[in-house]
Amino acid sequence: MSHPENFLESVRVPVGFNLVPPPGWDTIPLRSGTREAIQRIVRKSVSQLPAGFPKDDIPKARLQLTKELKQTVRQARNSDGLTLYLPVERMHGMLIPASFVASEPLGAPAGNIEPEAVLIDLARDAEEASARELDGTAAVRILQKLPADPDKGVEVPSWRVQYTVPITHSVPAQWLTFSFSTLTTPDMDIEFTETLVELFDAVMTTFRWSYA
């Protein structure tokens, strides 16, 4: 008969997770420390402006970036976001129009049912879904290609990738989602968009549960 502490050890519930962001990306925590993170990213971005950038325009650029980051933060919080990940270094002179959000722990979509059943339902309802594994836990990956929606302020199409994973041994069942989105602007070719999606998939392979 096994000792109780060994049994408890085998069913311990994660207290969080770790991810390794891509090089040139930064994180904004959405529970606390948000303002400080925005200020840090704005300072870094301003320091990377081209040498010939007019000094008189720097305050305007700083205000514009701060406004955009605050808007992105609001959208992430409205989606139950826990942490926002976004590029802060320019690639070929441009900031990549992409980001991803890790959610707060969410309740099971349909009550306390088996995680496998929820994953099957999610995959069944999606056009492009595939089974994945995150640190030994079954997950589902869904890809959506969304059209522009000017009525909602979305002027260009976008691609969205979402990973959904149950929190191991949580009672009642809880879930995490990781949602990546990138705009498909007219000057971006499809190969570049696919590369960004592959980059996010690579990030998700670094997912690890963390324990107290």
Results as ranks from 00 to 15, higher is better:
residue 2 S to C: 11
residue 4 P to F: 10
residue 6 N to A: 15
residue 6 N to G: 14
residue 8 L to I: 09
residue 9 E to T: 14
residue 13 V to C: 10
residue 14 P to E: 05
residue 20 V to Q: 13
residue 25 W to E: 06
residue 32 S to W: 07
residue 32 S to P: 00
residue 32 S to T: 13
residue 33 G to W: 13
residue 33 G to D: 08
residue 37 A to C: 05
residue 40 R to N: 11
residue 40 R to H: 09
residue 47 S to N: 10
residue 47 S to C: 02
residue 50 P to T: 08
residue 51 A to N: 05
residue 56 D to F: 11
residue 56 D to K: 09
residue 58 I to R: 15
residue 60 K to G: 10
residue 64 Q to M: 11
residue 67 K to H: 07
residue 67 K to T: 13
residue 68 E to C: 04
residue 75 Q to N: 07
residue 75 Q to S: 10
residue 77 R to Q: 14
residue 79 S to R: 13
residue 82 L to C: 05
residue 83 T to N: 01
residue 83 T to A: 00
residue 83 T to H: 00
residue 83 T to M: 01
residue 84 L to H: 04
residue 88 V to A: 11
residue 89 E to F: 03
residue 91 M to T: 10
residue 92 H to N: 14
residue 92 H to V: 05
residue 95 L to A: 11
residue 97 P to A: 09
residue 100 F to C: 06
residue 101 V to P: 04
residue 101 V to H: 08
residue 114 E to D: 15
residue 115 P to F: 01
residue 115 P to E: 02
residue 116 E to G: 07
residue 121 D to P: 03
residue 121 D to I: 03
residue 122 L to W: 02
residue 125 D to W: 03
residue 127 E to R: 09
residue 128 E to N: 09
residue 130 S to R: 15
residue 130 S to P: 03
residue 131 A to L: 10
residue 136 G to S: 09
residue 141 R to S: 03
residue 141 R to H: 05
residue 142 I to D: 00
residue 145 K to E: 15
residue 147 P to A: 13
residue 156 V to E: 09
residue 160 R to C: 03
residue 163 Y to G: 01
residue 163 Y to I: 09
residue 164 T to G: 02
residue 165 V to H: 00
residue 165 V to I: 08
residue 166 P to W: 02
residue 167 I to M: 04
residue 168 T to A: 06
residue 169 H to D: 14
residue 169 H to K: 06
residue 172 P to C: 04
residue 175 W to D: 00
residue 180 F to A: 08
residue 185 T to Y: 10
residue 186 P to L: 13
residue 192 F to G: 00
residue 193 T to F: 01
residue 196 L to C: 05
residue 196 L to M: 13
residue 202 A to Q: 11
residue 202 A to C: 06
residue 203 V to C: 04
residue 210 S to Q: 09
